[in-house]
Design a protein around this nucleic acid. Sequence first.
DNA 1: CCTTGACCTGGAGCGCGCTCCAGGTTGTTC
DNA 2: GAACAACCTGGAGCGCGCTCCAGGTCAAGG
Lengths: 147, 147
Amino acid sequence: MVTTSDSSAPSEPTLTPAEMVERTGVGLDTLRYYESEGLLTDVARAANGHRRYRRGDVLWVEVLRCLRETGMTIEQLRHYCRLGEDGPVTKPERKRILLDHRAEVERQIEERRRALDLIDHKLEHYADTRAIGIGPIPLTSQAEARS
Amino acid sequence: MVTTSDSSAPSEPTLTPAEMVERTGVGLDTLRYYESEGLLTDVARAANGHRRYRRGDVLWVEVLRCLRETGMTIEQLRHYCRLGEDGPVTKPERKRILLDHRAEVERQIEERRRALDLIDHKLEHYADTRAIGIGPIPLTSQAEARS
DNA sequence: CCTTGACCTGGAGCGCGCTCCAGGTTGTTC
DNA sequence: GAACAACCTGGAGCGCGCTCCAGGTCAAGG
């Protein structure tokens, strides 16, 4: 099946569920789950009831994934989406949410930078270790992994 | 209770479970869970069977938290710990694990940098929005949140 | 007509990482 | 000696974010 558009009208080209999965890398079940949770609304339907995803859906799902991967919960995303449906009056709150999450992501970056430092510190302990281990008899055992 | 050391011998000062929780910020149940999963071994005991955490335990738990917060699973941590107990012969593998996780953390940082870009891009859409929303009649609704 | 395949719905199940709970022991305090 | 606090153990429960499944519809192909 290569059908991407449905009606004869020169409307927007759409994607079948399978195509959507391929484009976004997000599983079918997850797409439906997002929709059921109100994170993805107004998905078009073909005459037979099958979903038809529009270009905007693709972009939006990418945003959803991005926010999810940086720790925003389904609950928070739902809240943000609801605000979007309530019109421009909610703009300030939506802006606030984005700013808050932005700060959270920066916190995460900083946390990870510290993790890198810690890992590098531990790696010094293995600095002289070659690809294949040539060592004497096991000694401390406990202190081993802890450096 | 201020008892931190137990025996009269000038051994190492230790922490009670409550003190450990305060020092590390890790909950009591979680500490016991880590121990039960083999992430924290050879925790000392007082005569009455109560745990006594040593200085090394504090440091190690901080390492555990750092690795956990950057996505290393309990399973992977358990594996790493087991290797530590098997002595120096496992050094190369442990080094490999750290290097792999280091790469993973860098990937996460890059992912979050892209998230910042995306958030900033969406924030441009709210650039003119003041603390309290003053907008006209709701329009697009759908396109609202999606920018 | 029958099969196949893509999709539908509603709901159950799952893996992870804790987190909580019941029931018990020990040690201190009044 | 009664009450209380801090801890013990083994095991159950939970919240999240999916992920899977049963049973059904519809359209195209052989």
